[in-house]
Amino acid sequence: MDFDFTSLFAFILFGLTIGVVYGIVALGISLIYSGLDIVHFAHGEIYMFGAFFGLVFSEHMGVPYPLAILSAMVCTGLLGIVIERVFYRRLTRAGGGYTVAGMGMIICGFGMSVVLQNIAYLSWGADAEPFPVDLGEPFQFGDISLPKSYGLTAVIALLLMAVLHFFLKKTKIGLAVRAVAANKDIAFLMGINVPLMISLIFGLACALAAAAGVLIGPMQSVQVEMGYLMLMKAFAAAVVGGFGSLPGAIVGGLLVGIFENLGAAYISPNHKDIYAFLLLILVLMVRPSGLFGVEVRVKA
């Protein structure tokens, strides 16, 4: 029986196209981790808010699609900054005890995800909304057709990565951000406005998640519950690539996407969502620092 290479190519392609979205969200998660030392469990809902903002701008206000992406990014970034200042700031600043920074932030993240999801539900209802964007005929690779929205997503992802890279490596503010990510106390002593930088980092991460949400809208429709599953996959991506590593996030995303599609294709389609979890757990057990991440030292 000859091996079906067309299908294999298709599966890998699917994995790459969805993986890039996981990567963008994972980018935000990694950014937050390197800047604030916390894992943000409400990031899936931020992604969902981004998608809804994009929908509102695009469908209800008639804004052209690229502008809608930008506007959604800005709005969601601002939303993120508000959340960070009002709720998370207290937790990340207070010192001592086991209820803070570690556990407190995680629990707060869960609570915030419930809050955000329900605010969205009360604002927009439980229905899934279609997000039609006319980009023309799909690409054709022989037998496989790929809607242009996937291509656009890949392009925008690369663009975002490039912009982020430029921002971090070539601008003064970017330098300040990297300093804060490396060591807050020293950065503070150097005269950097650390709280402002932290808010900026958080806002950036939320803007990235929003971009992912608006990009995925045409492919999957927009619904209040879309955040949870994306969060899991993005976490897997961030862990695989290495927490805190930005290129790692994208690579991790691609790997997760490919892994789950190949698993669904060749092992068992029923367990598709478990593959991402399995990868996550495997990496955490074997090499928690992931591919490019900082070495995770076990204290005792």
Binding site: I106, M285, V296
Partner: peptide, 10 residues
């Protein structure tokens, strides 16, 4: 082997 957020994720 893991702590804090990593353990939460696992």
């Amino acid at each position: 082997r893991l702590e804090g957020a990593y353990l939460a994720l696992a």
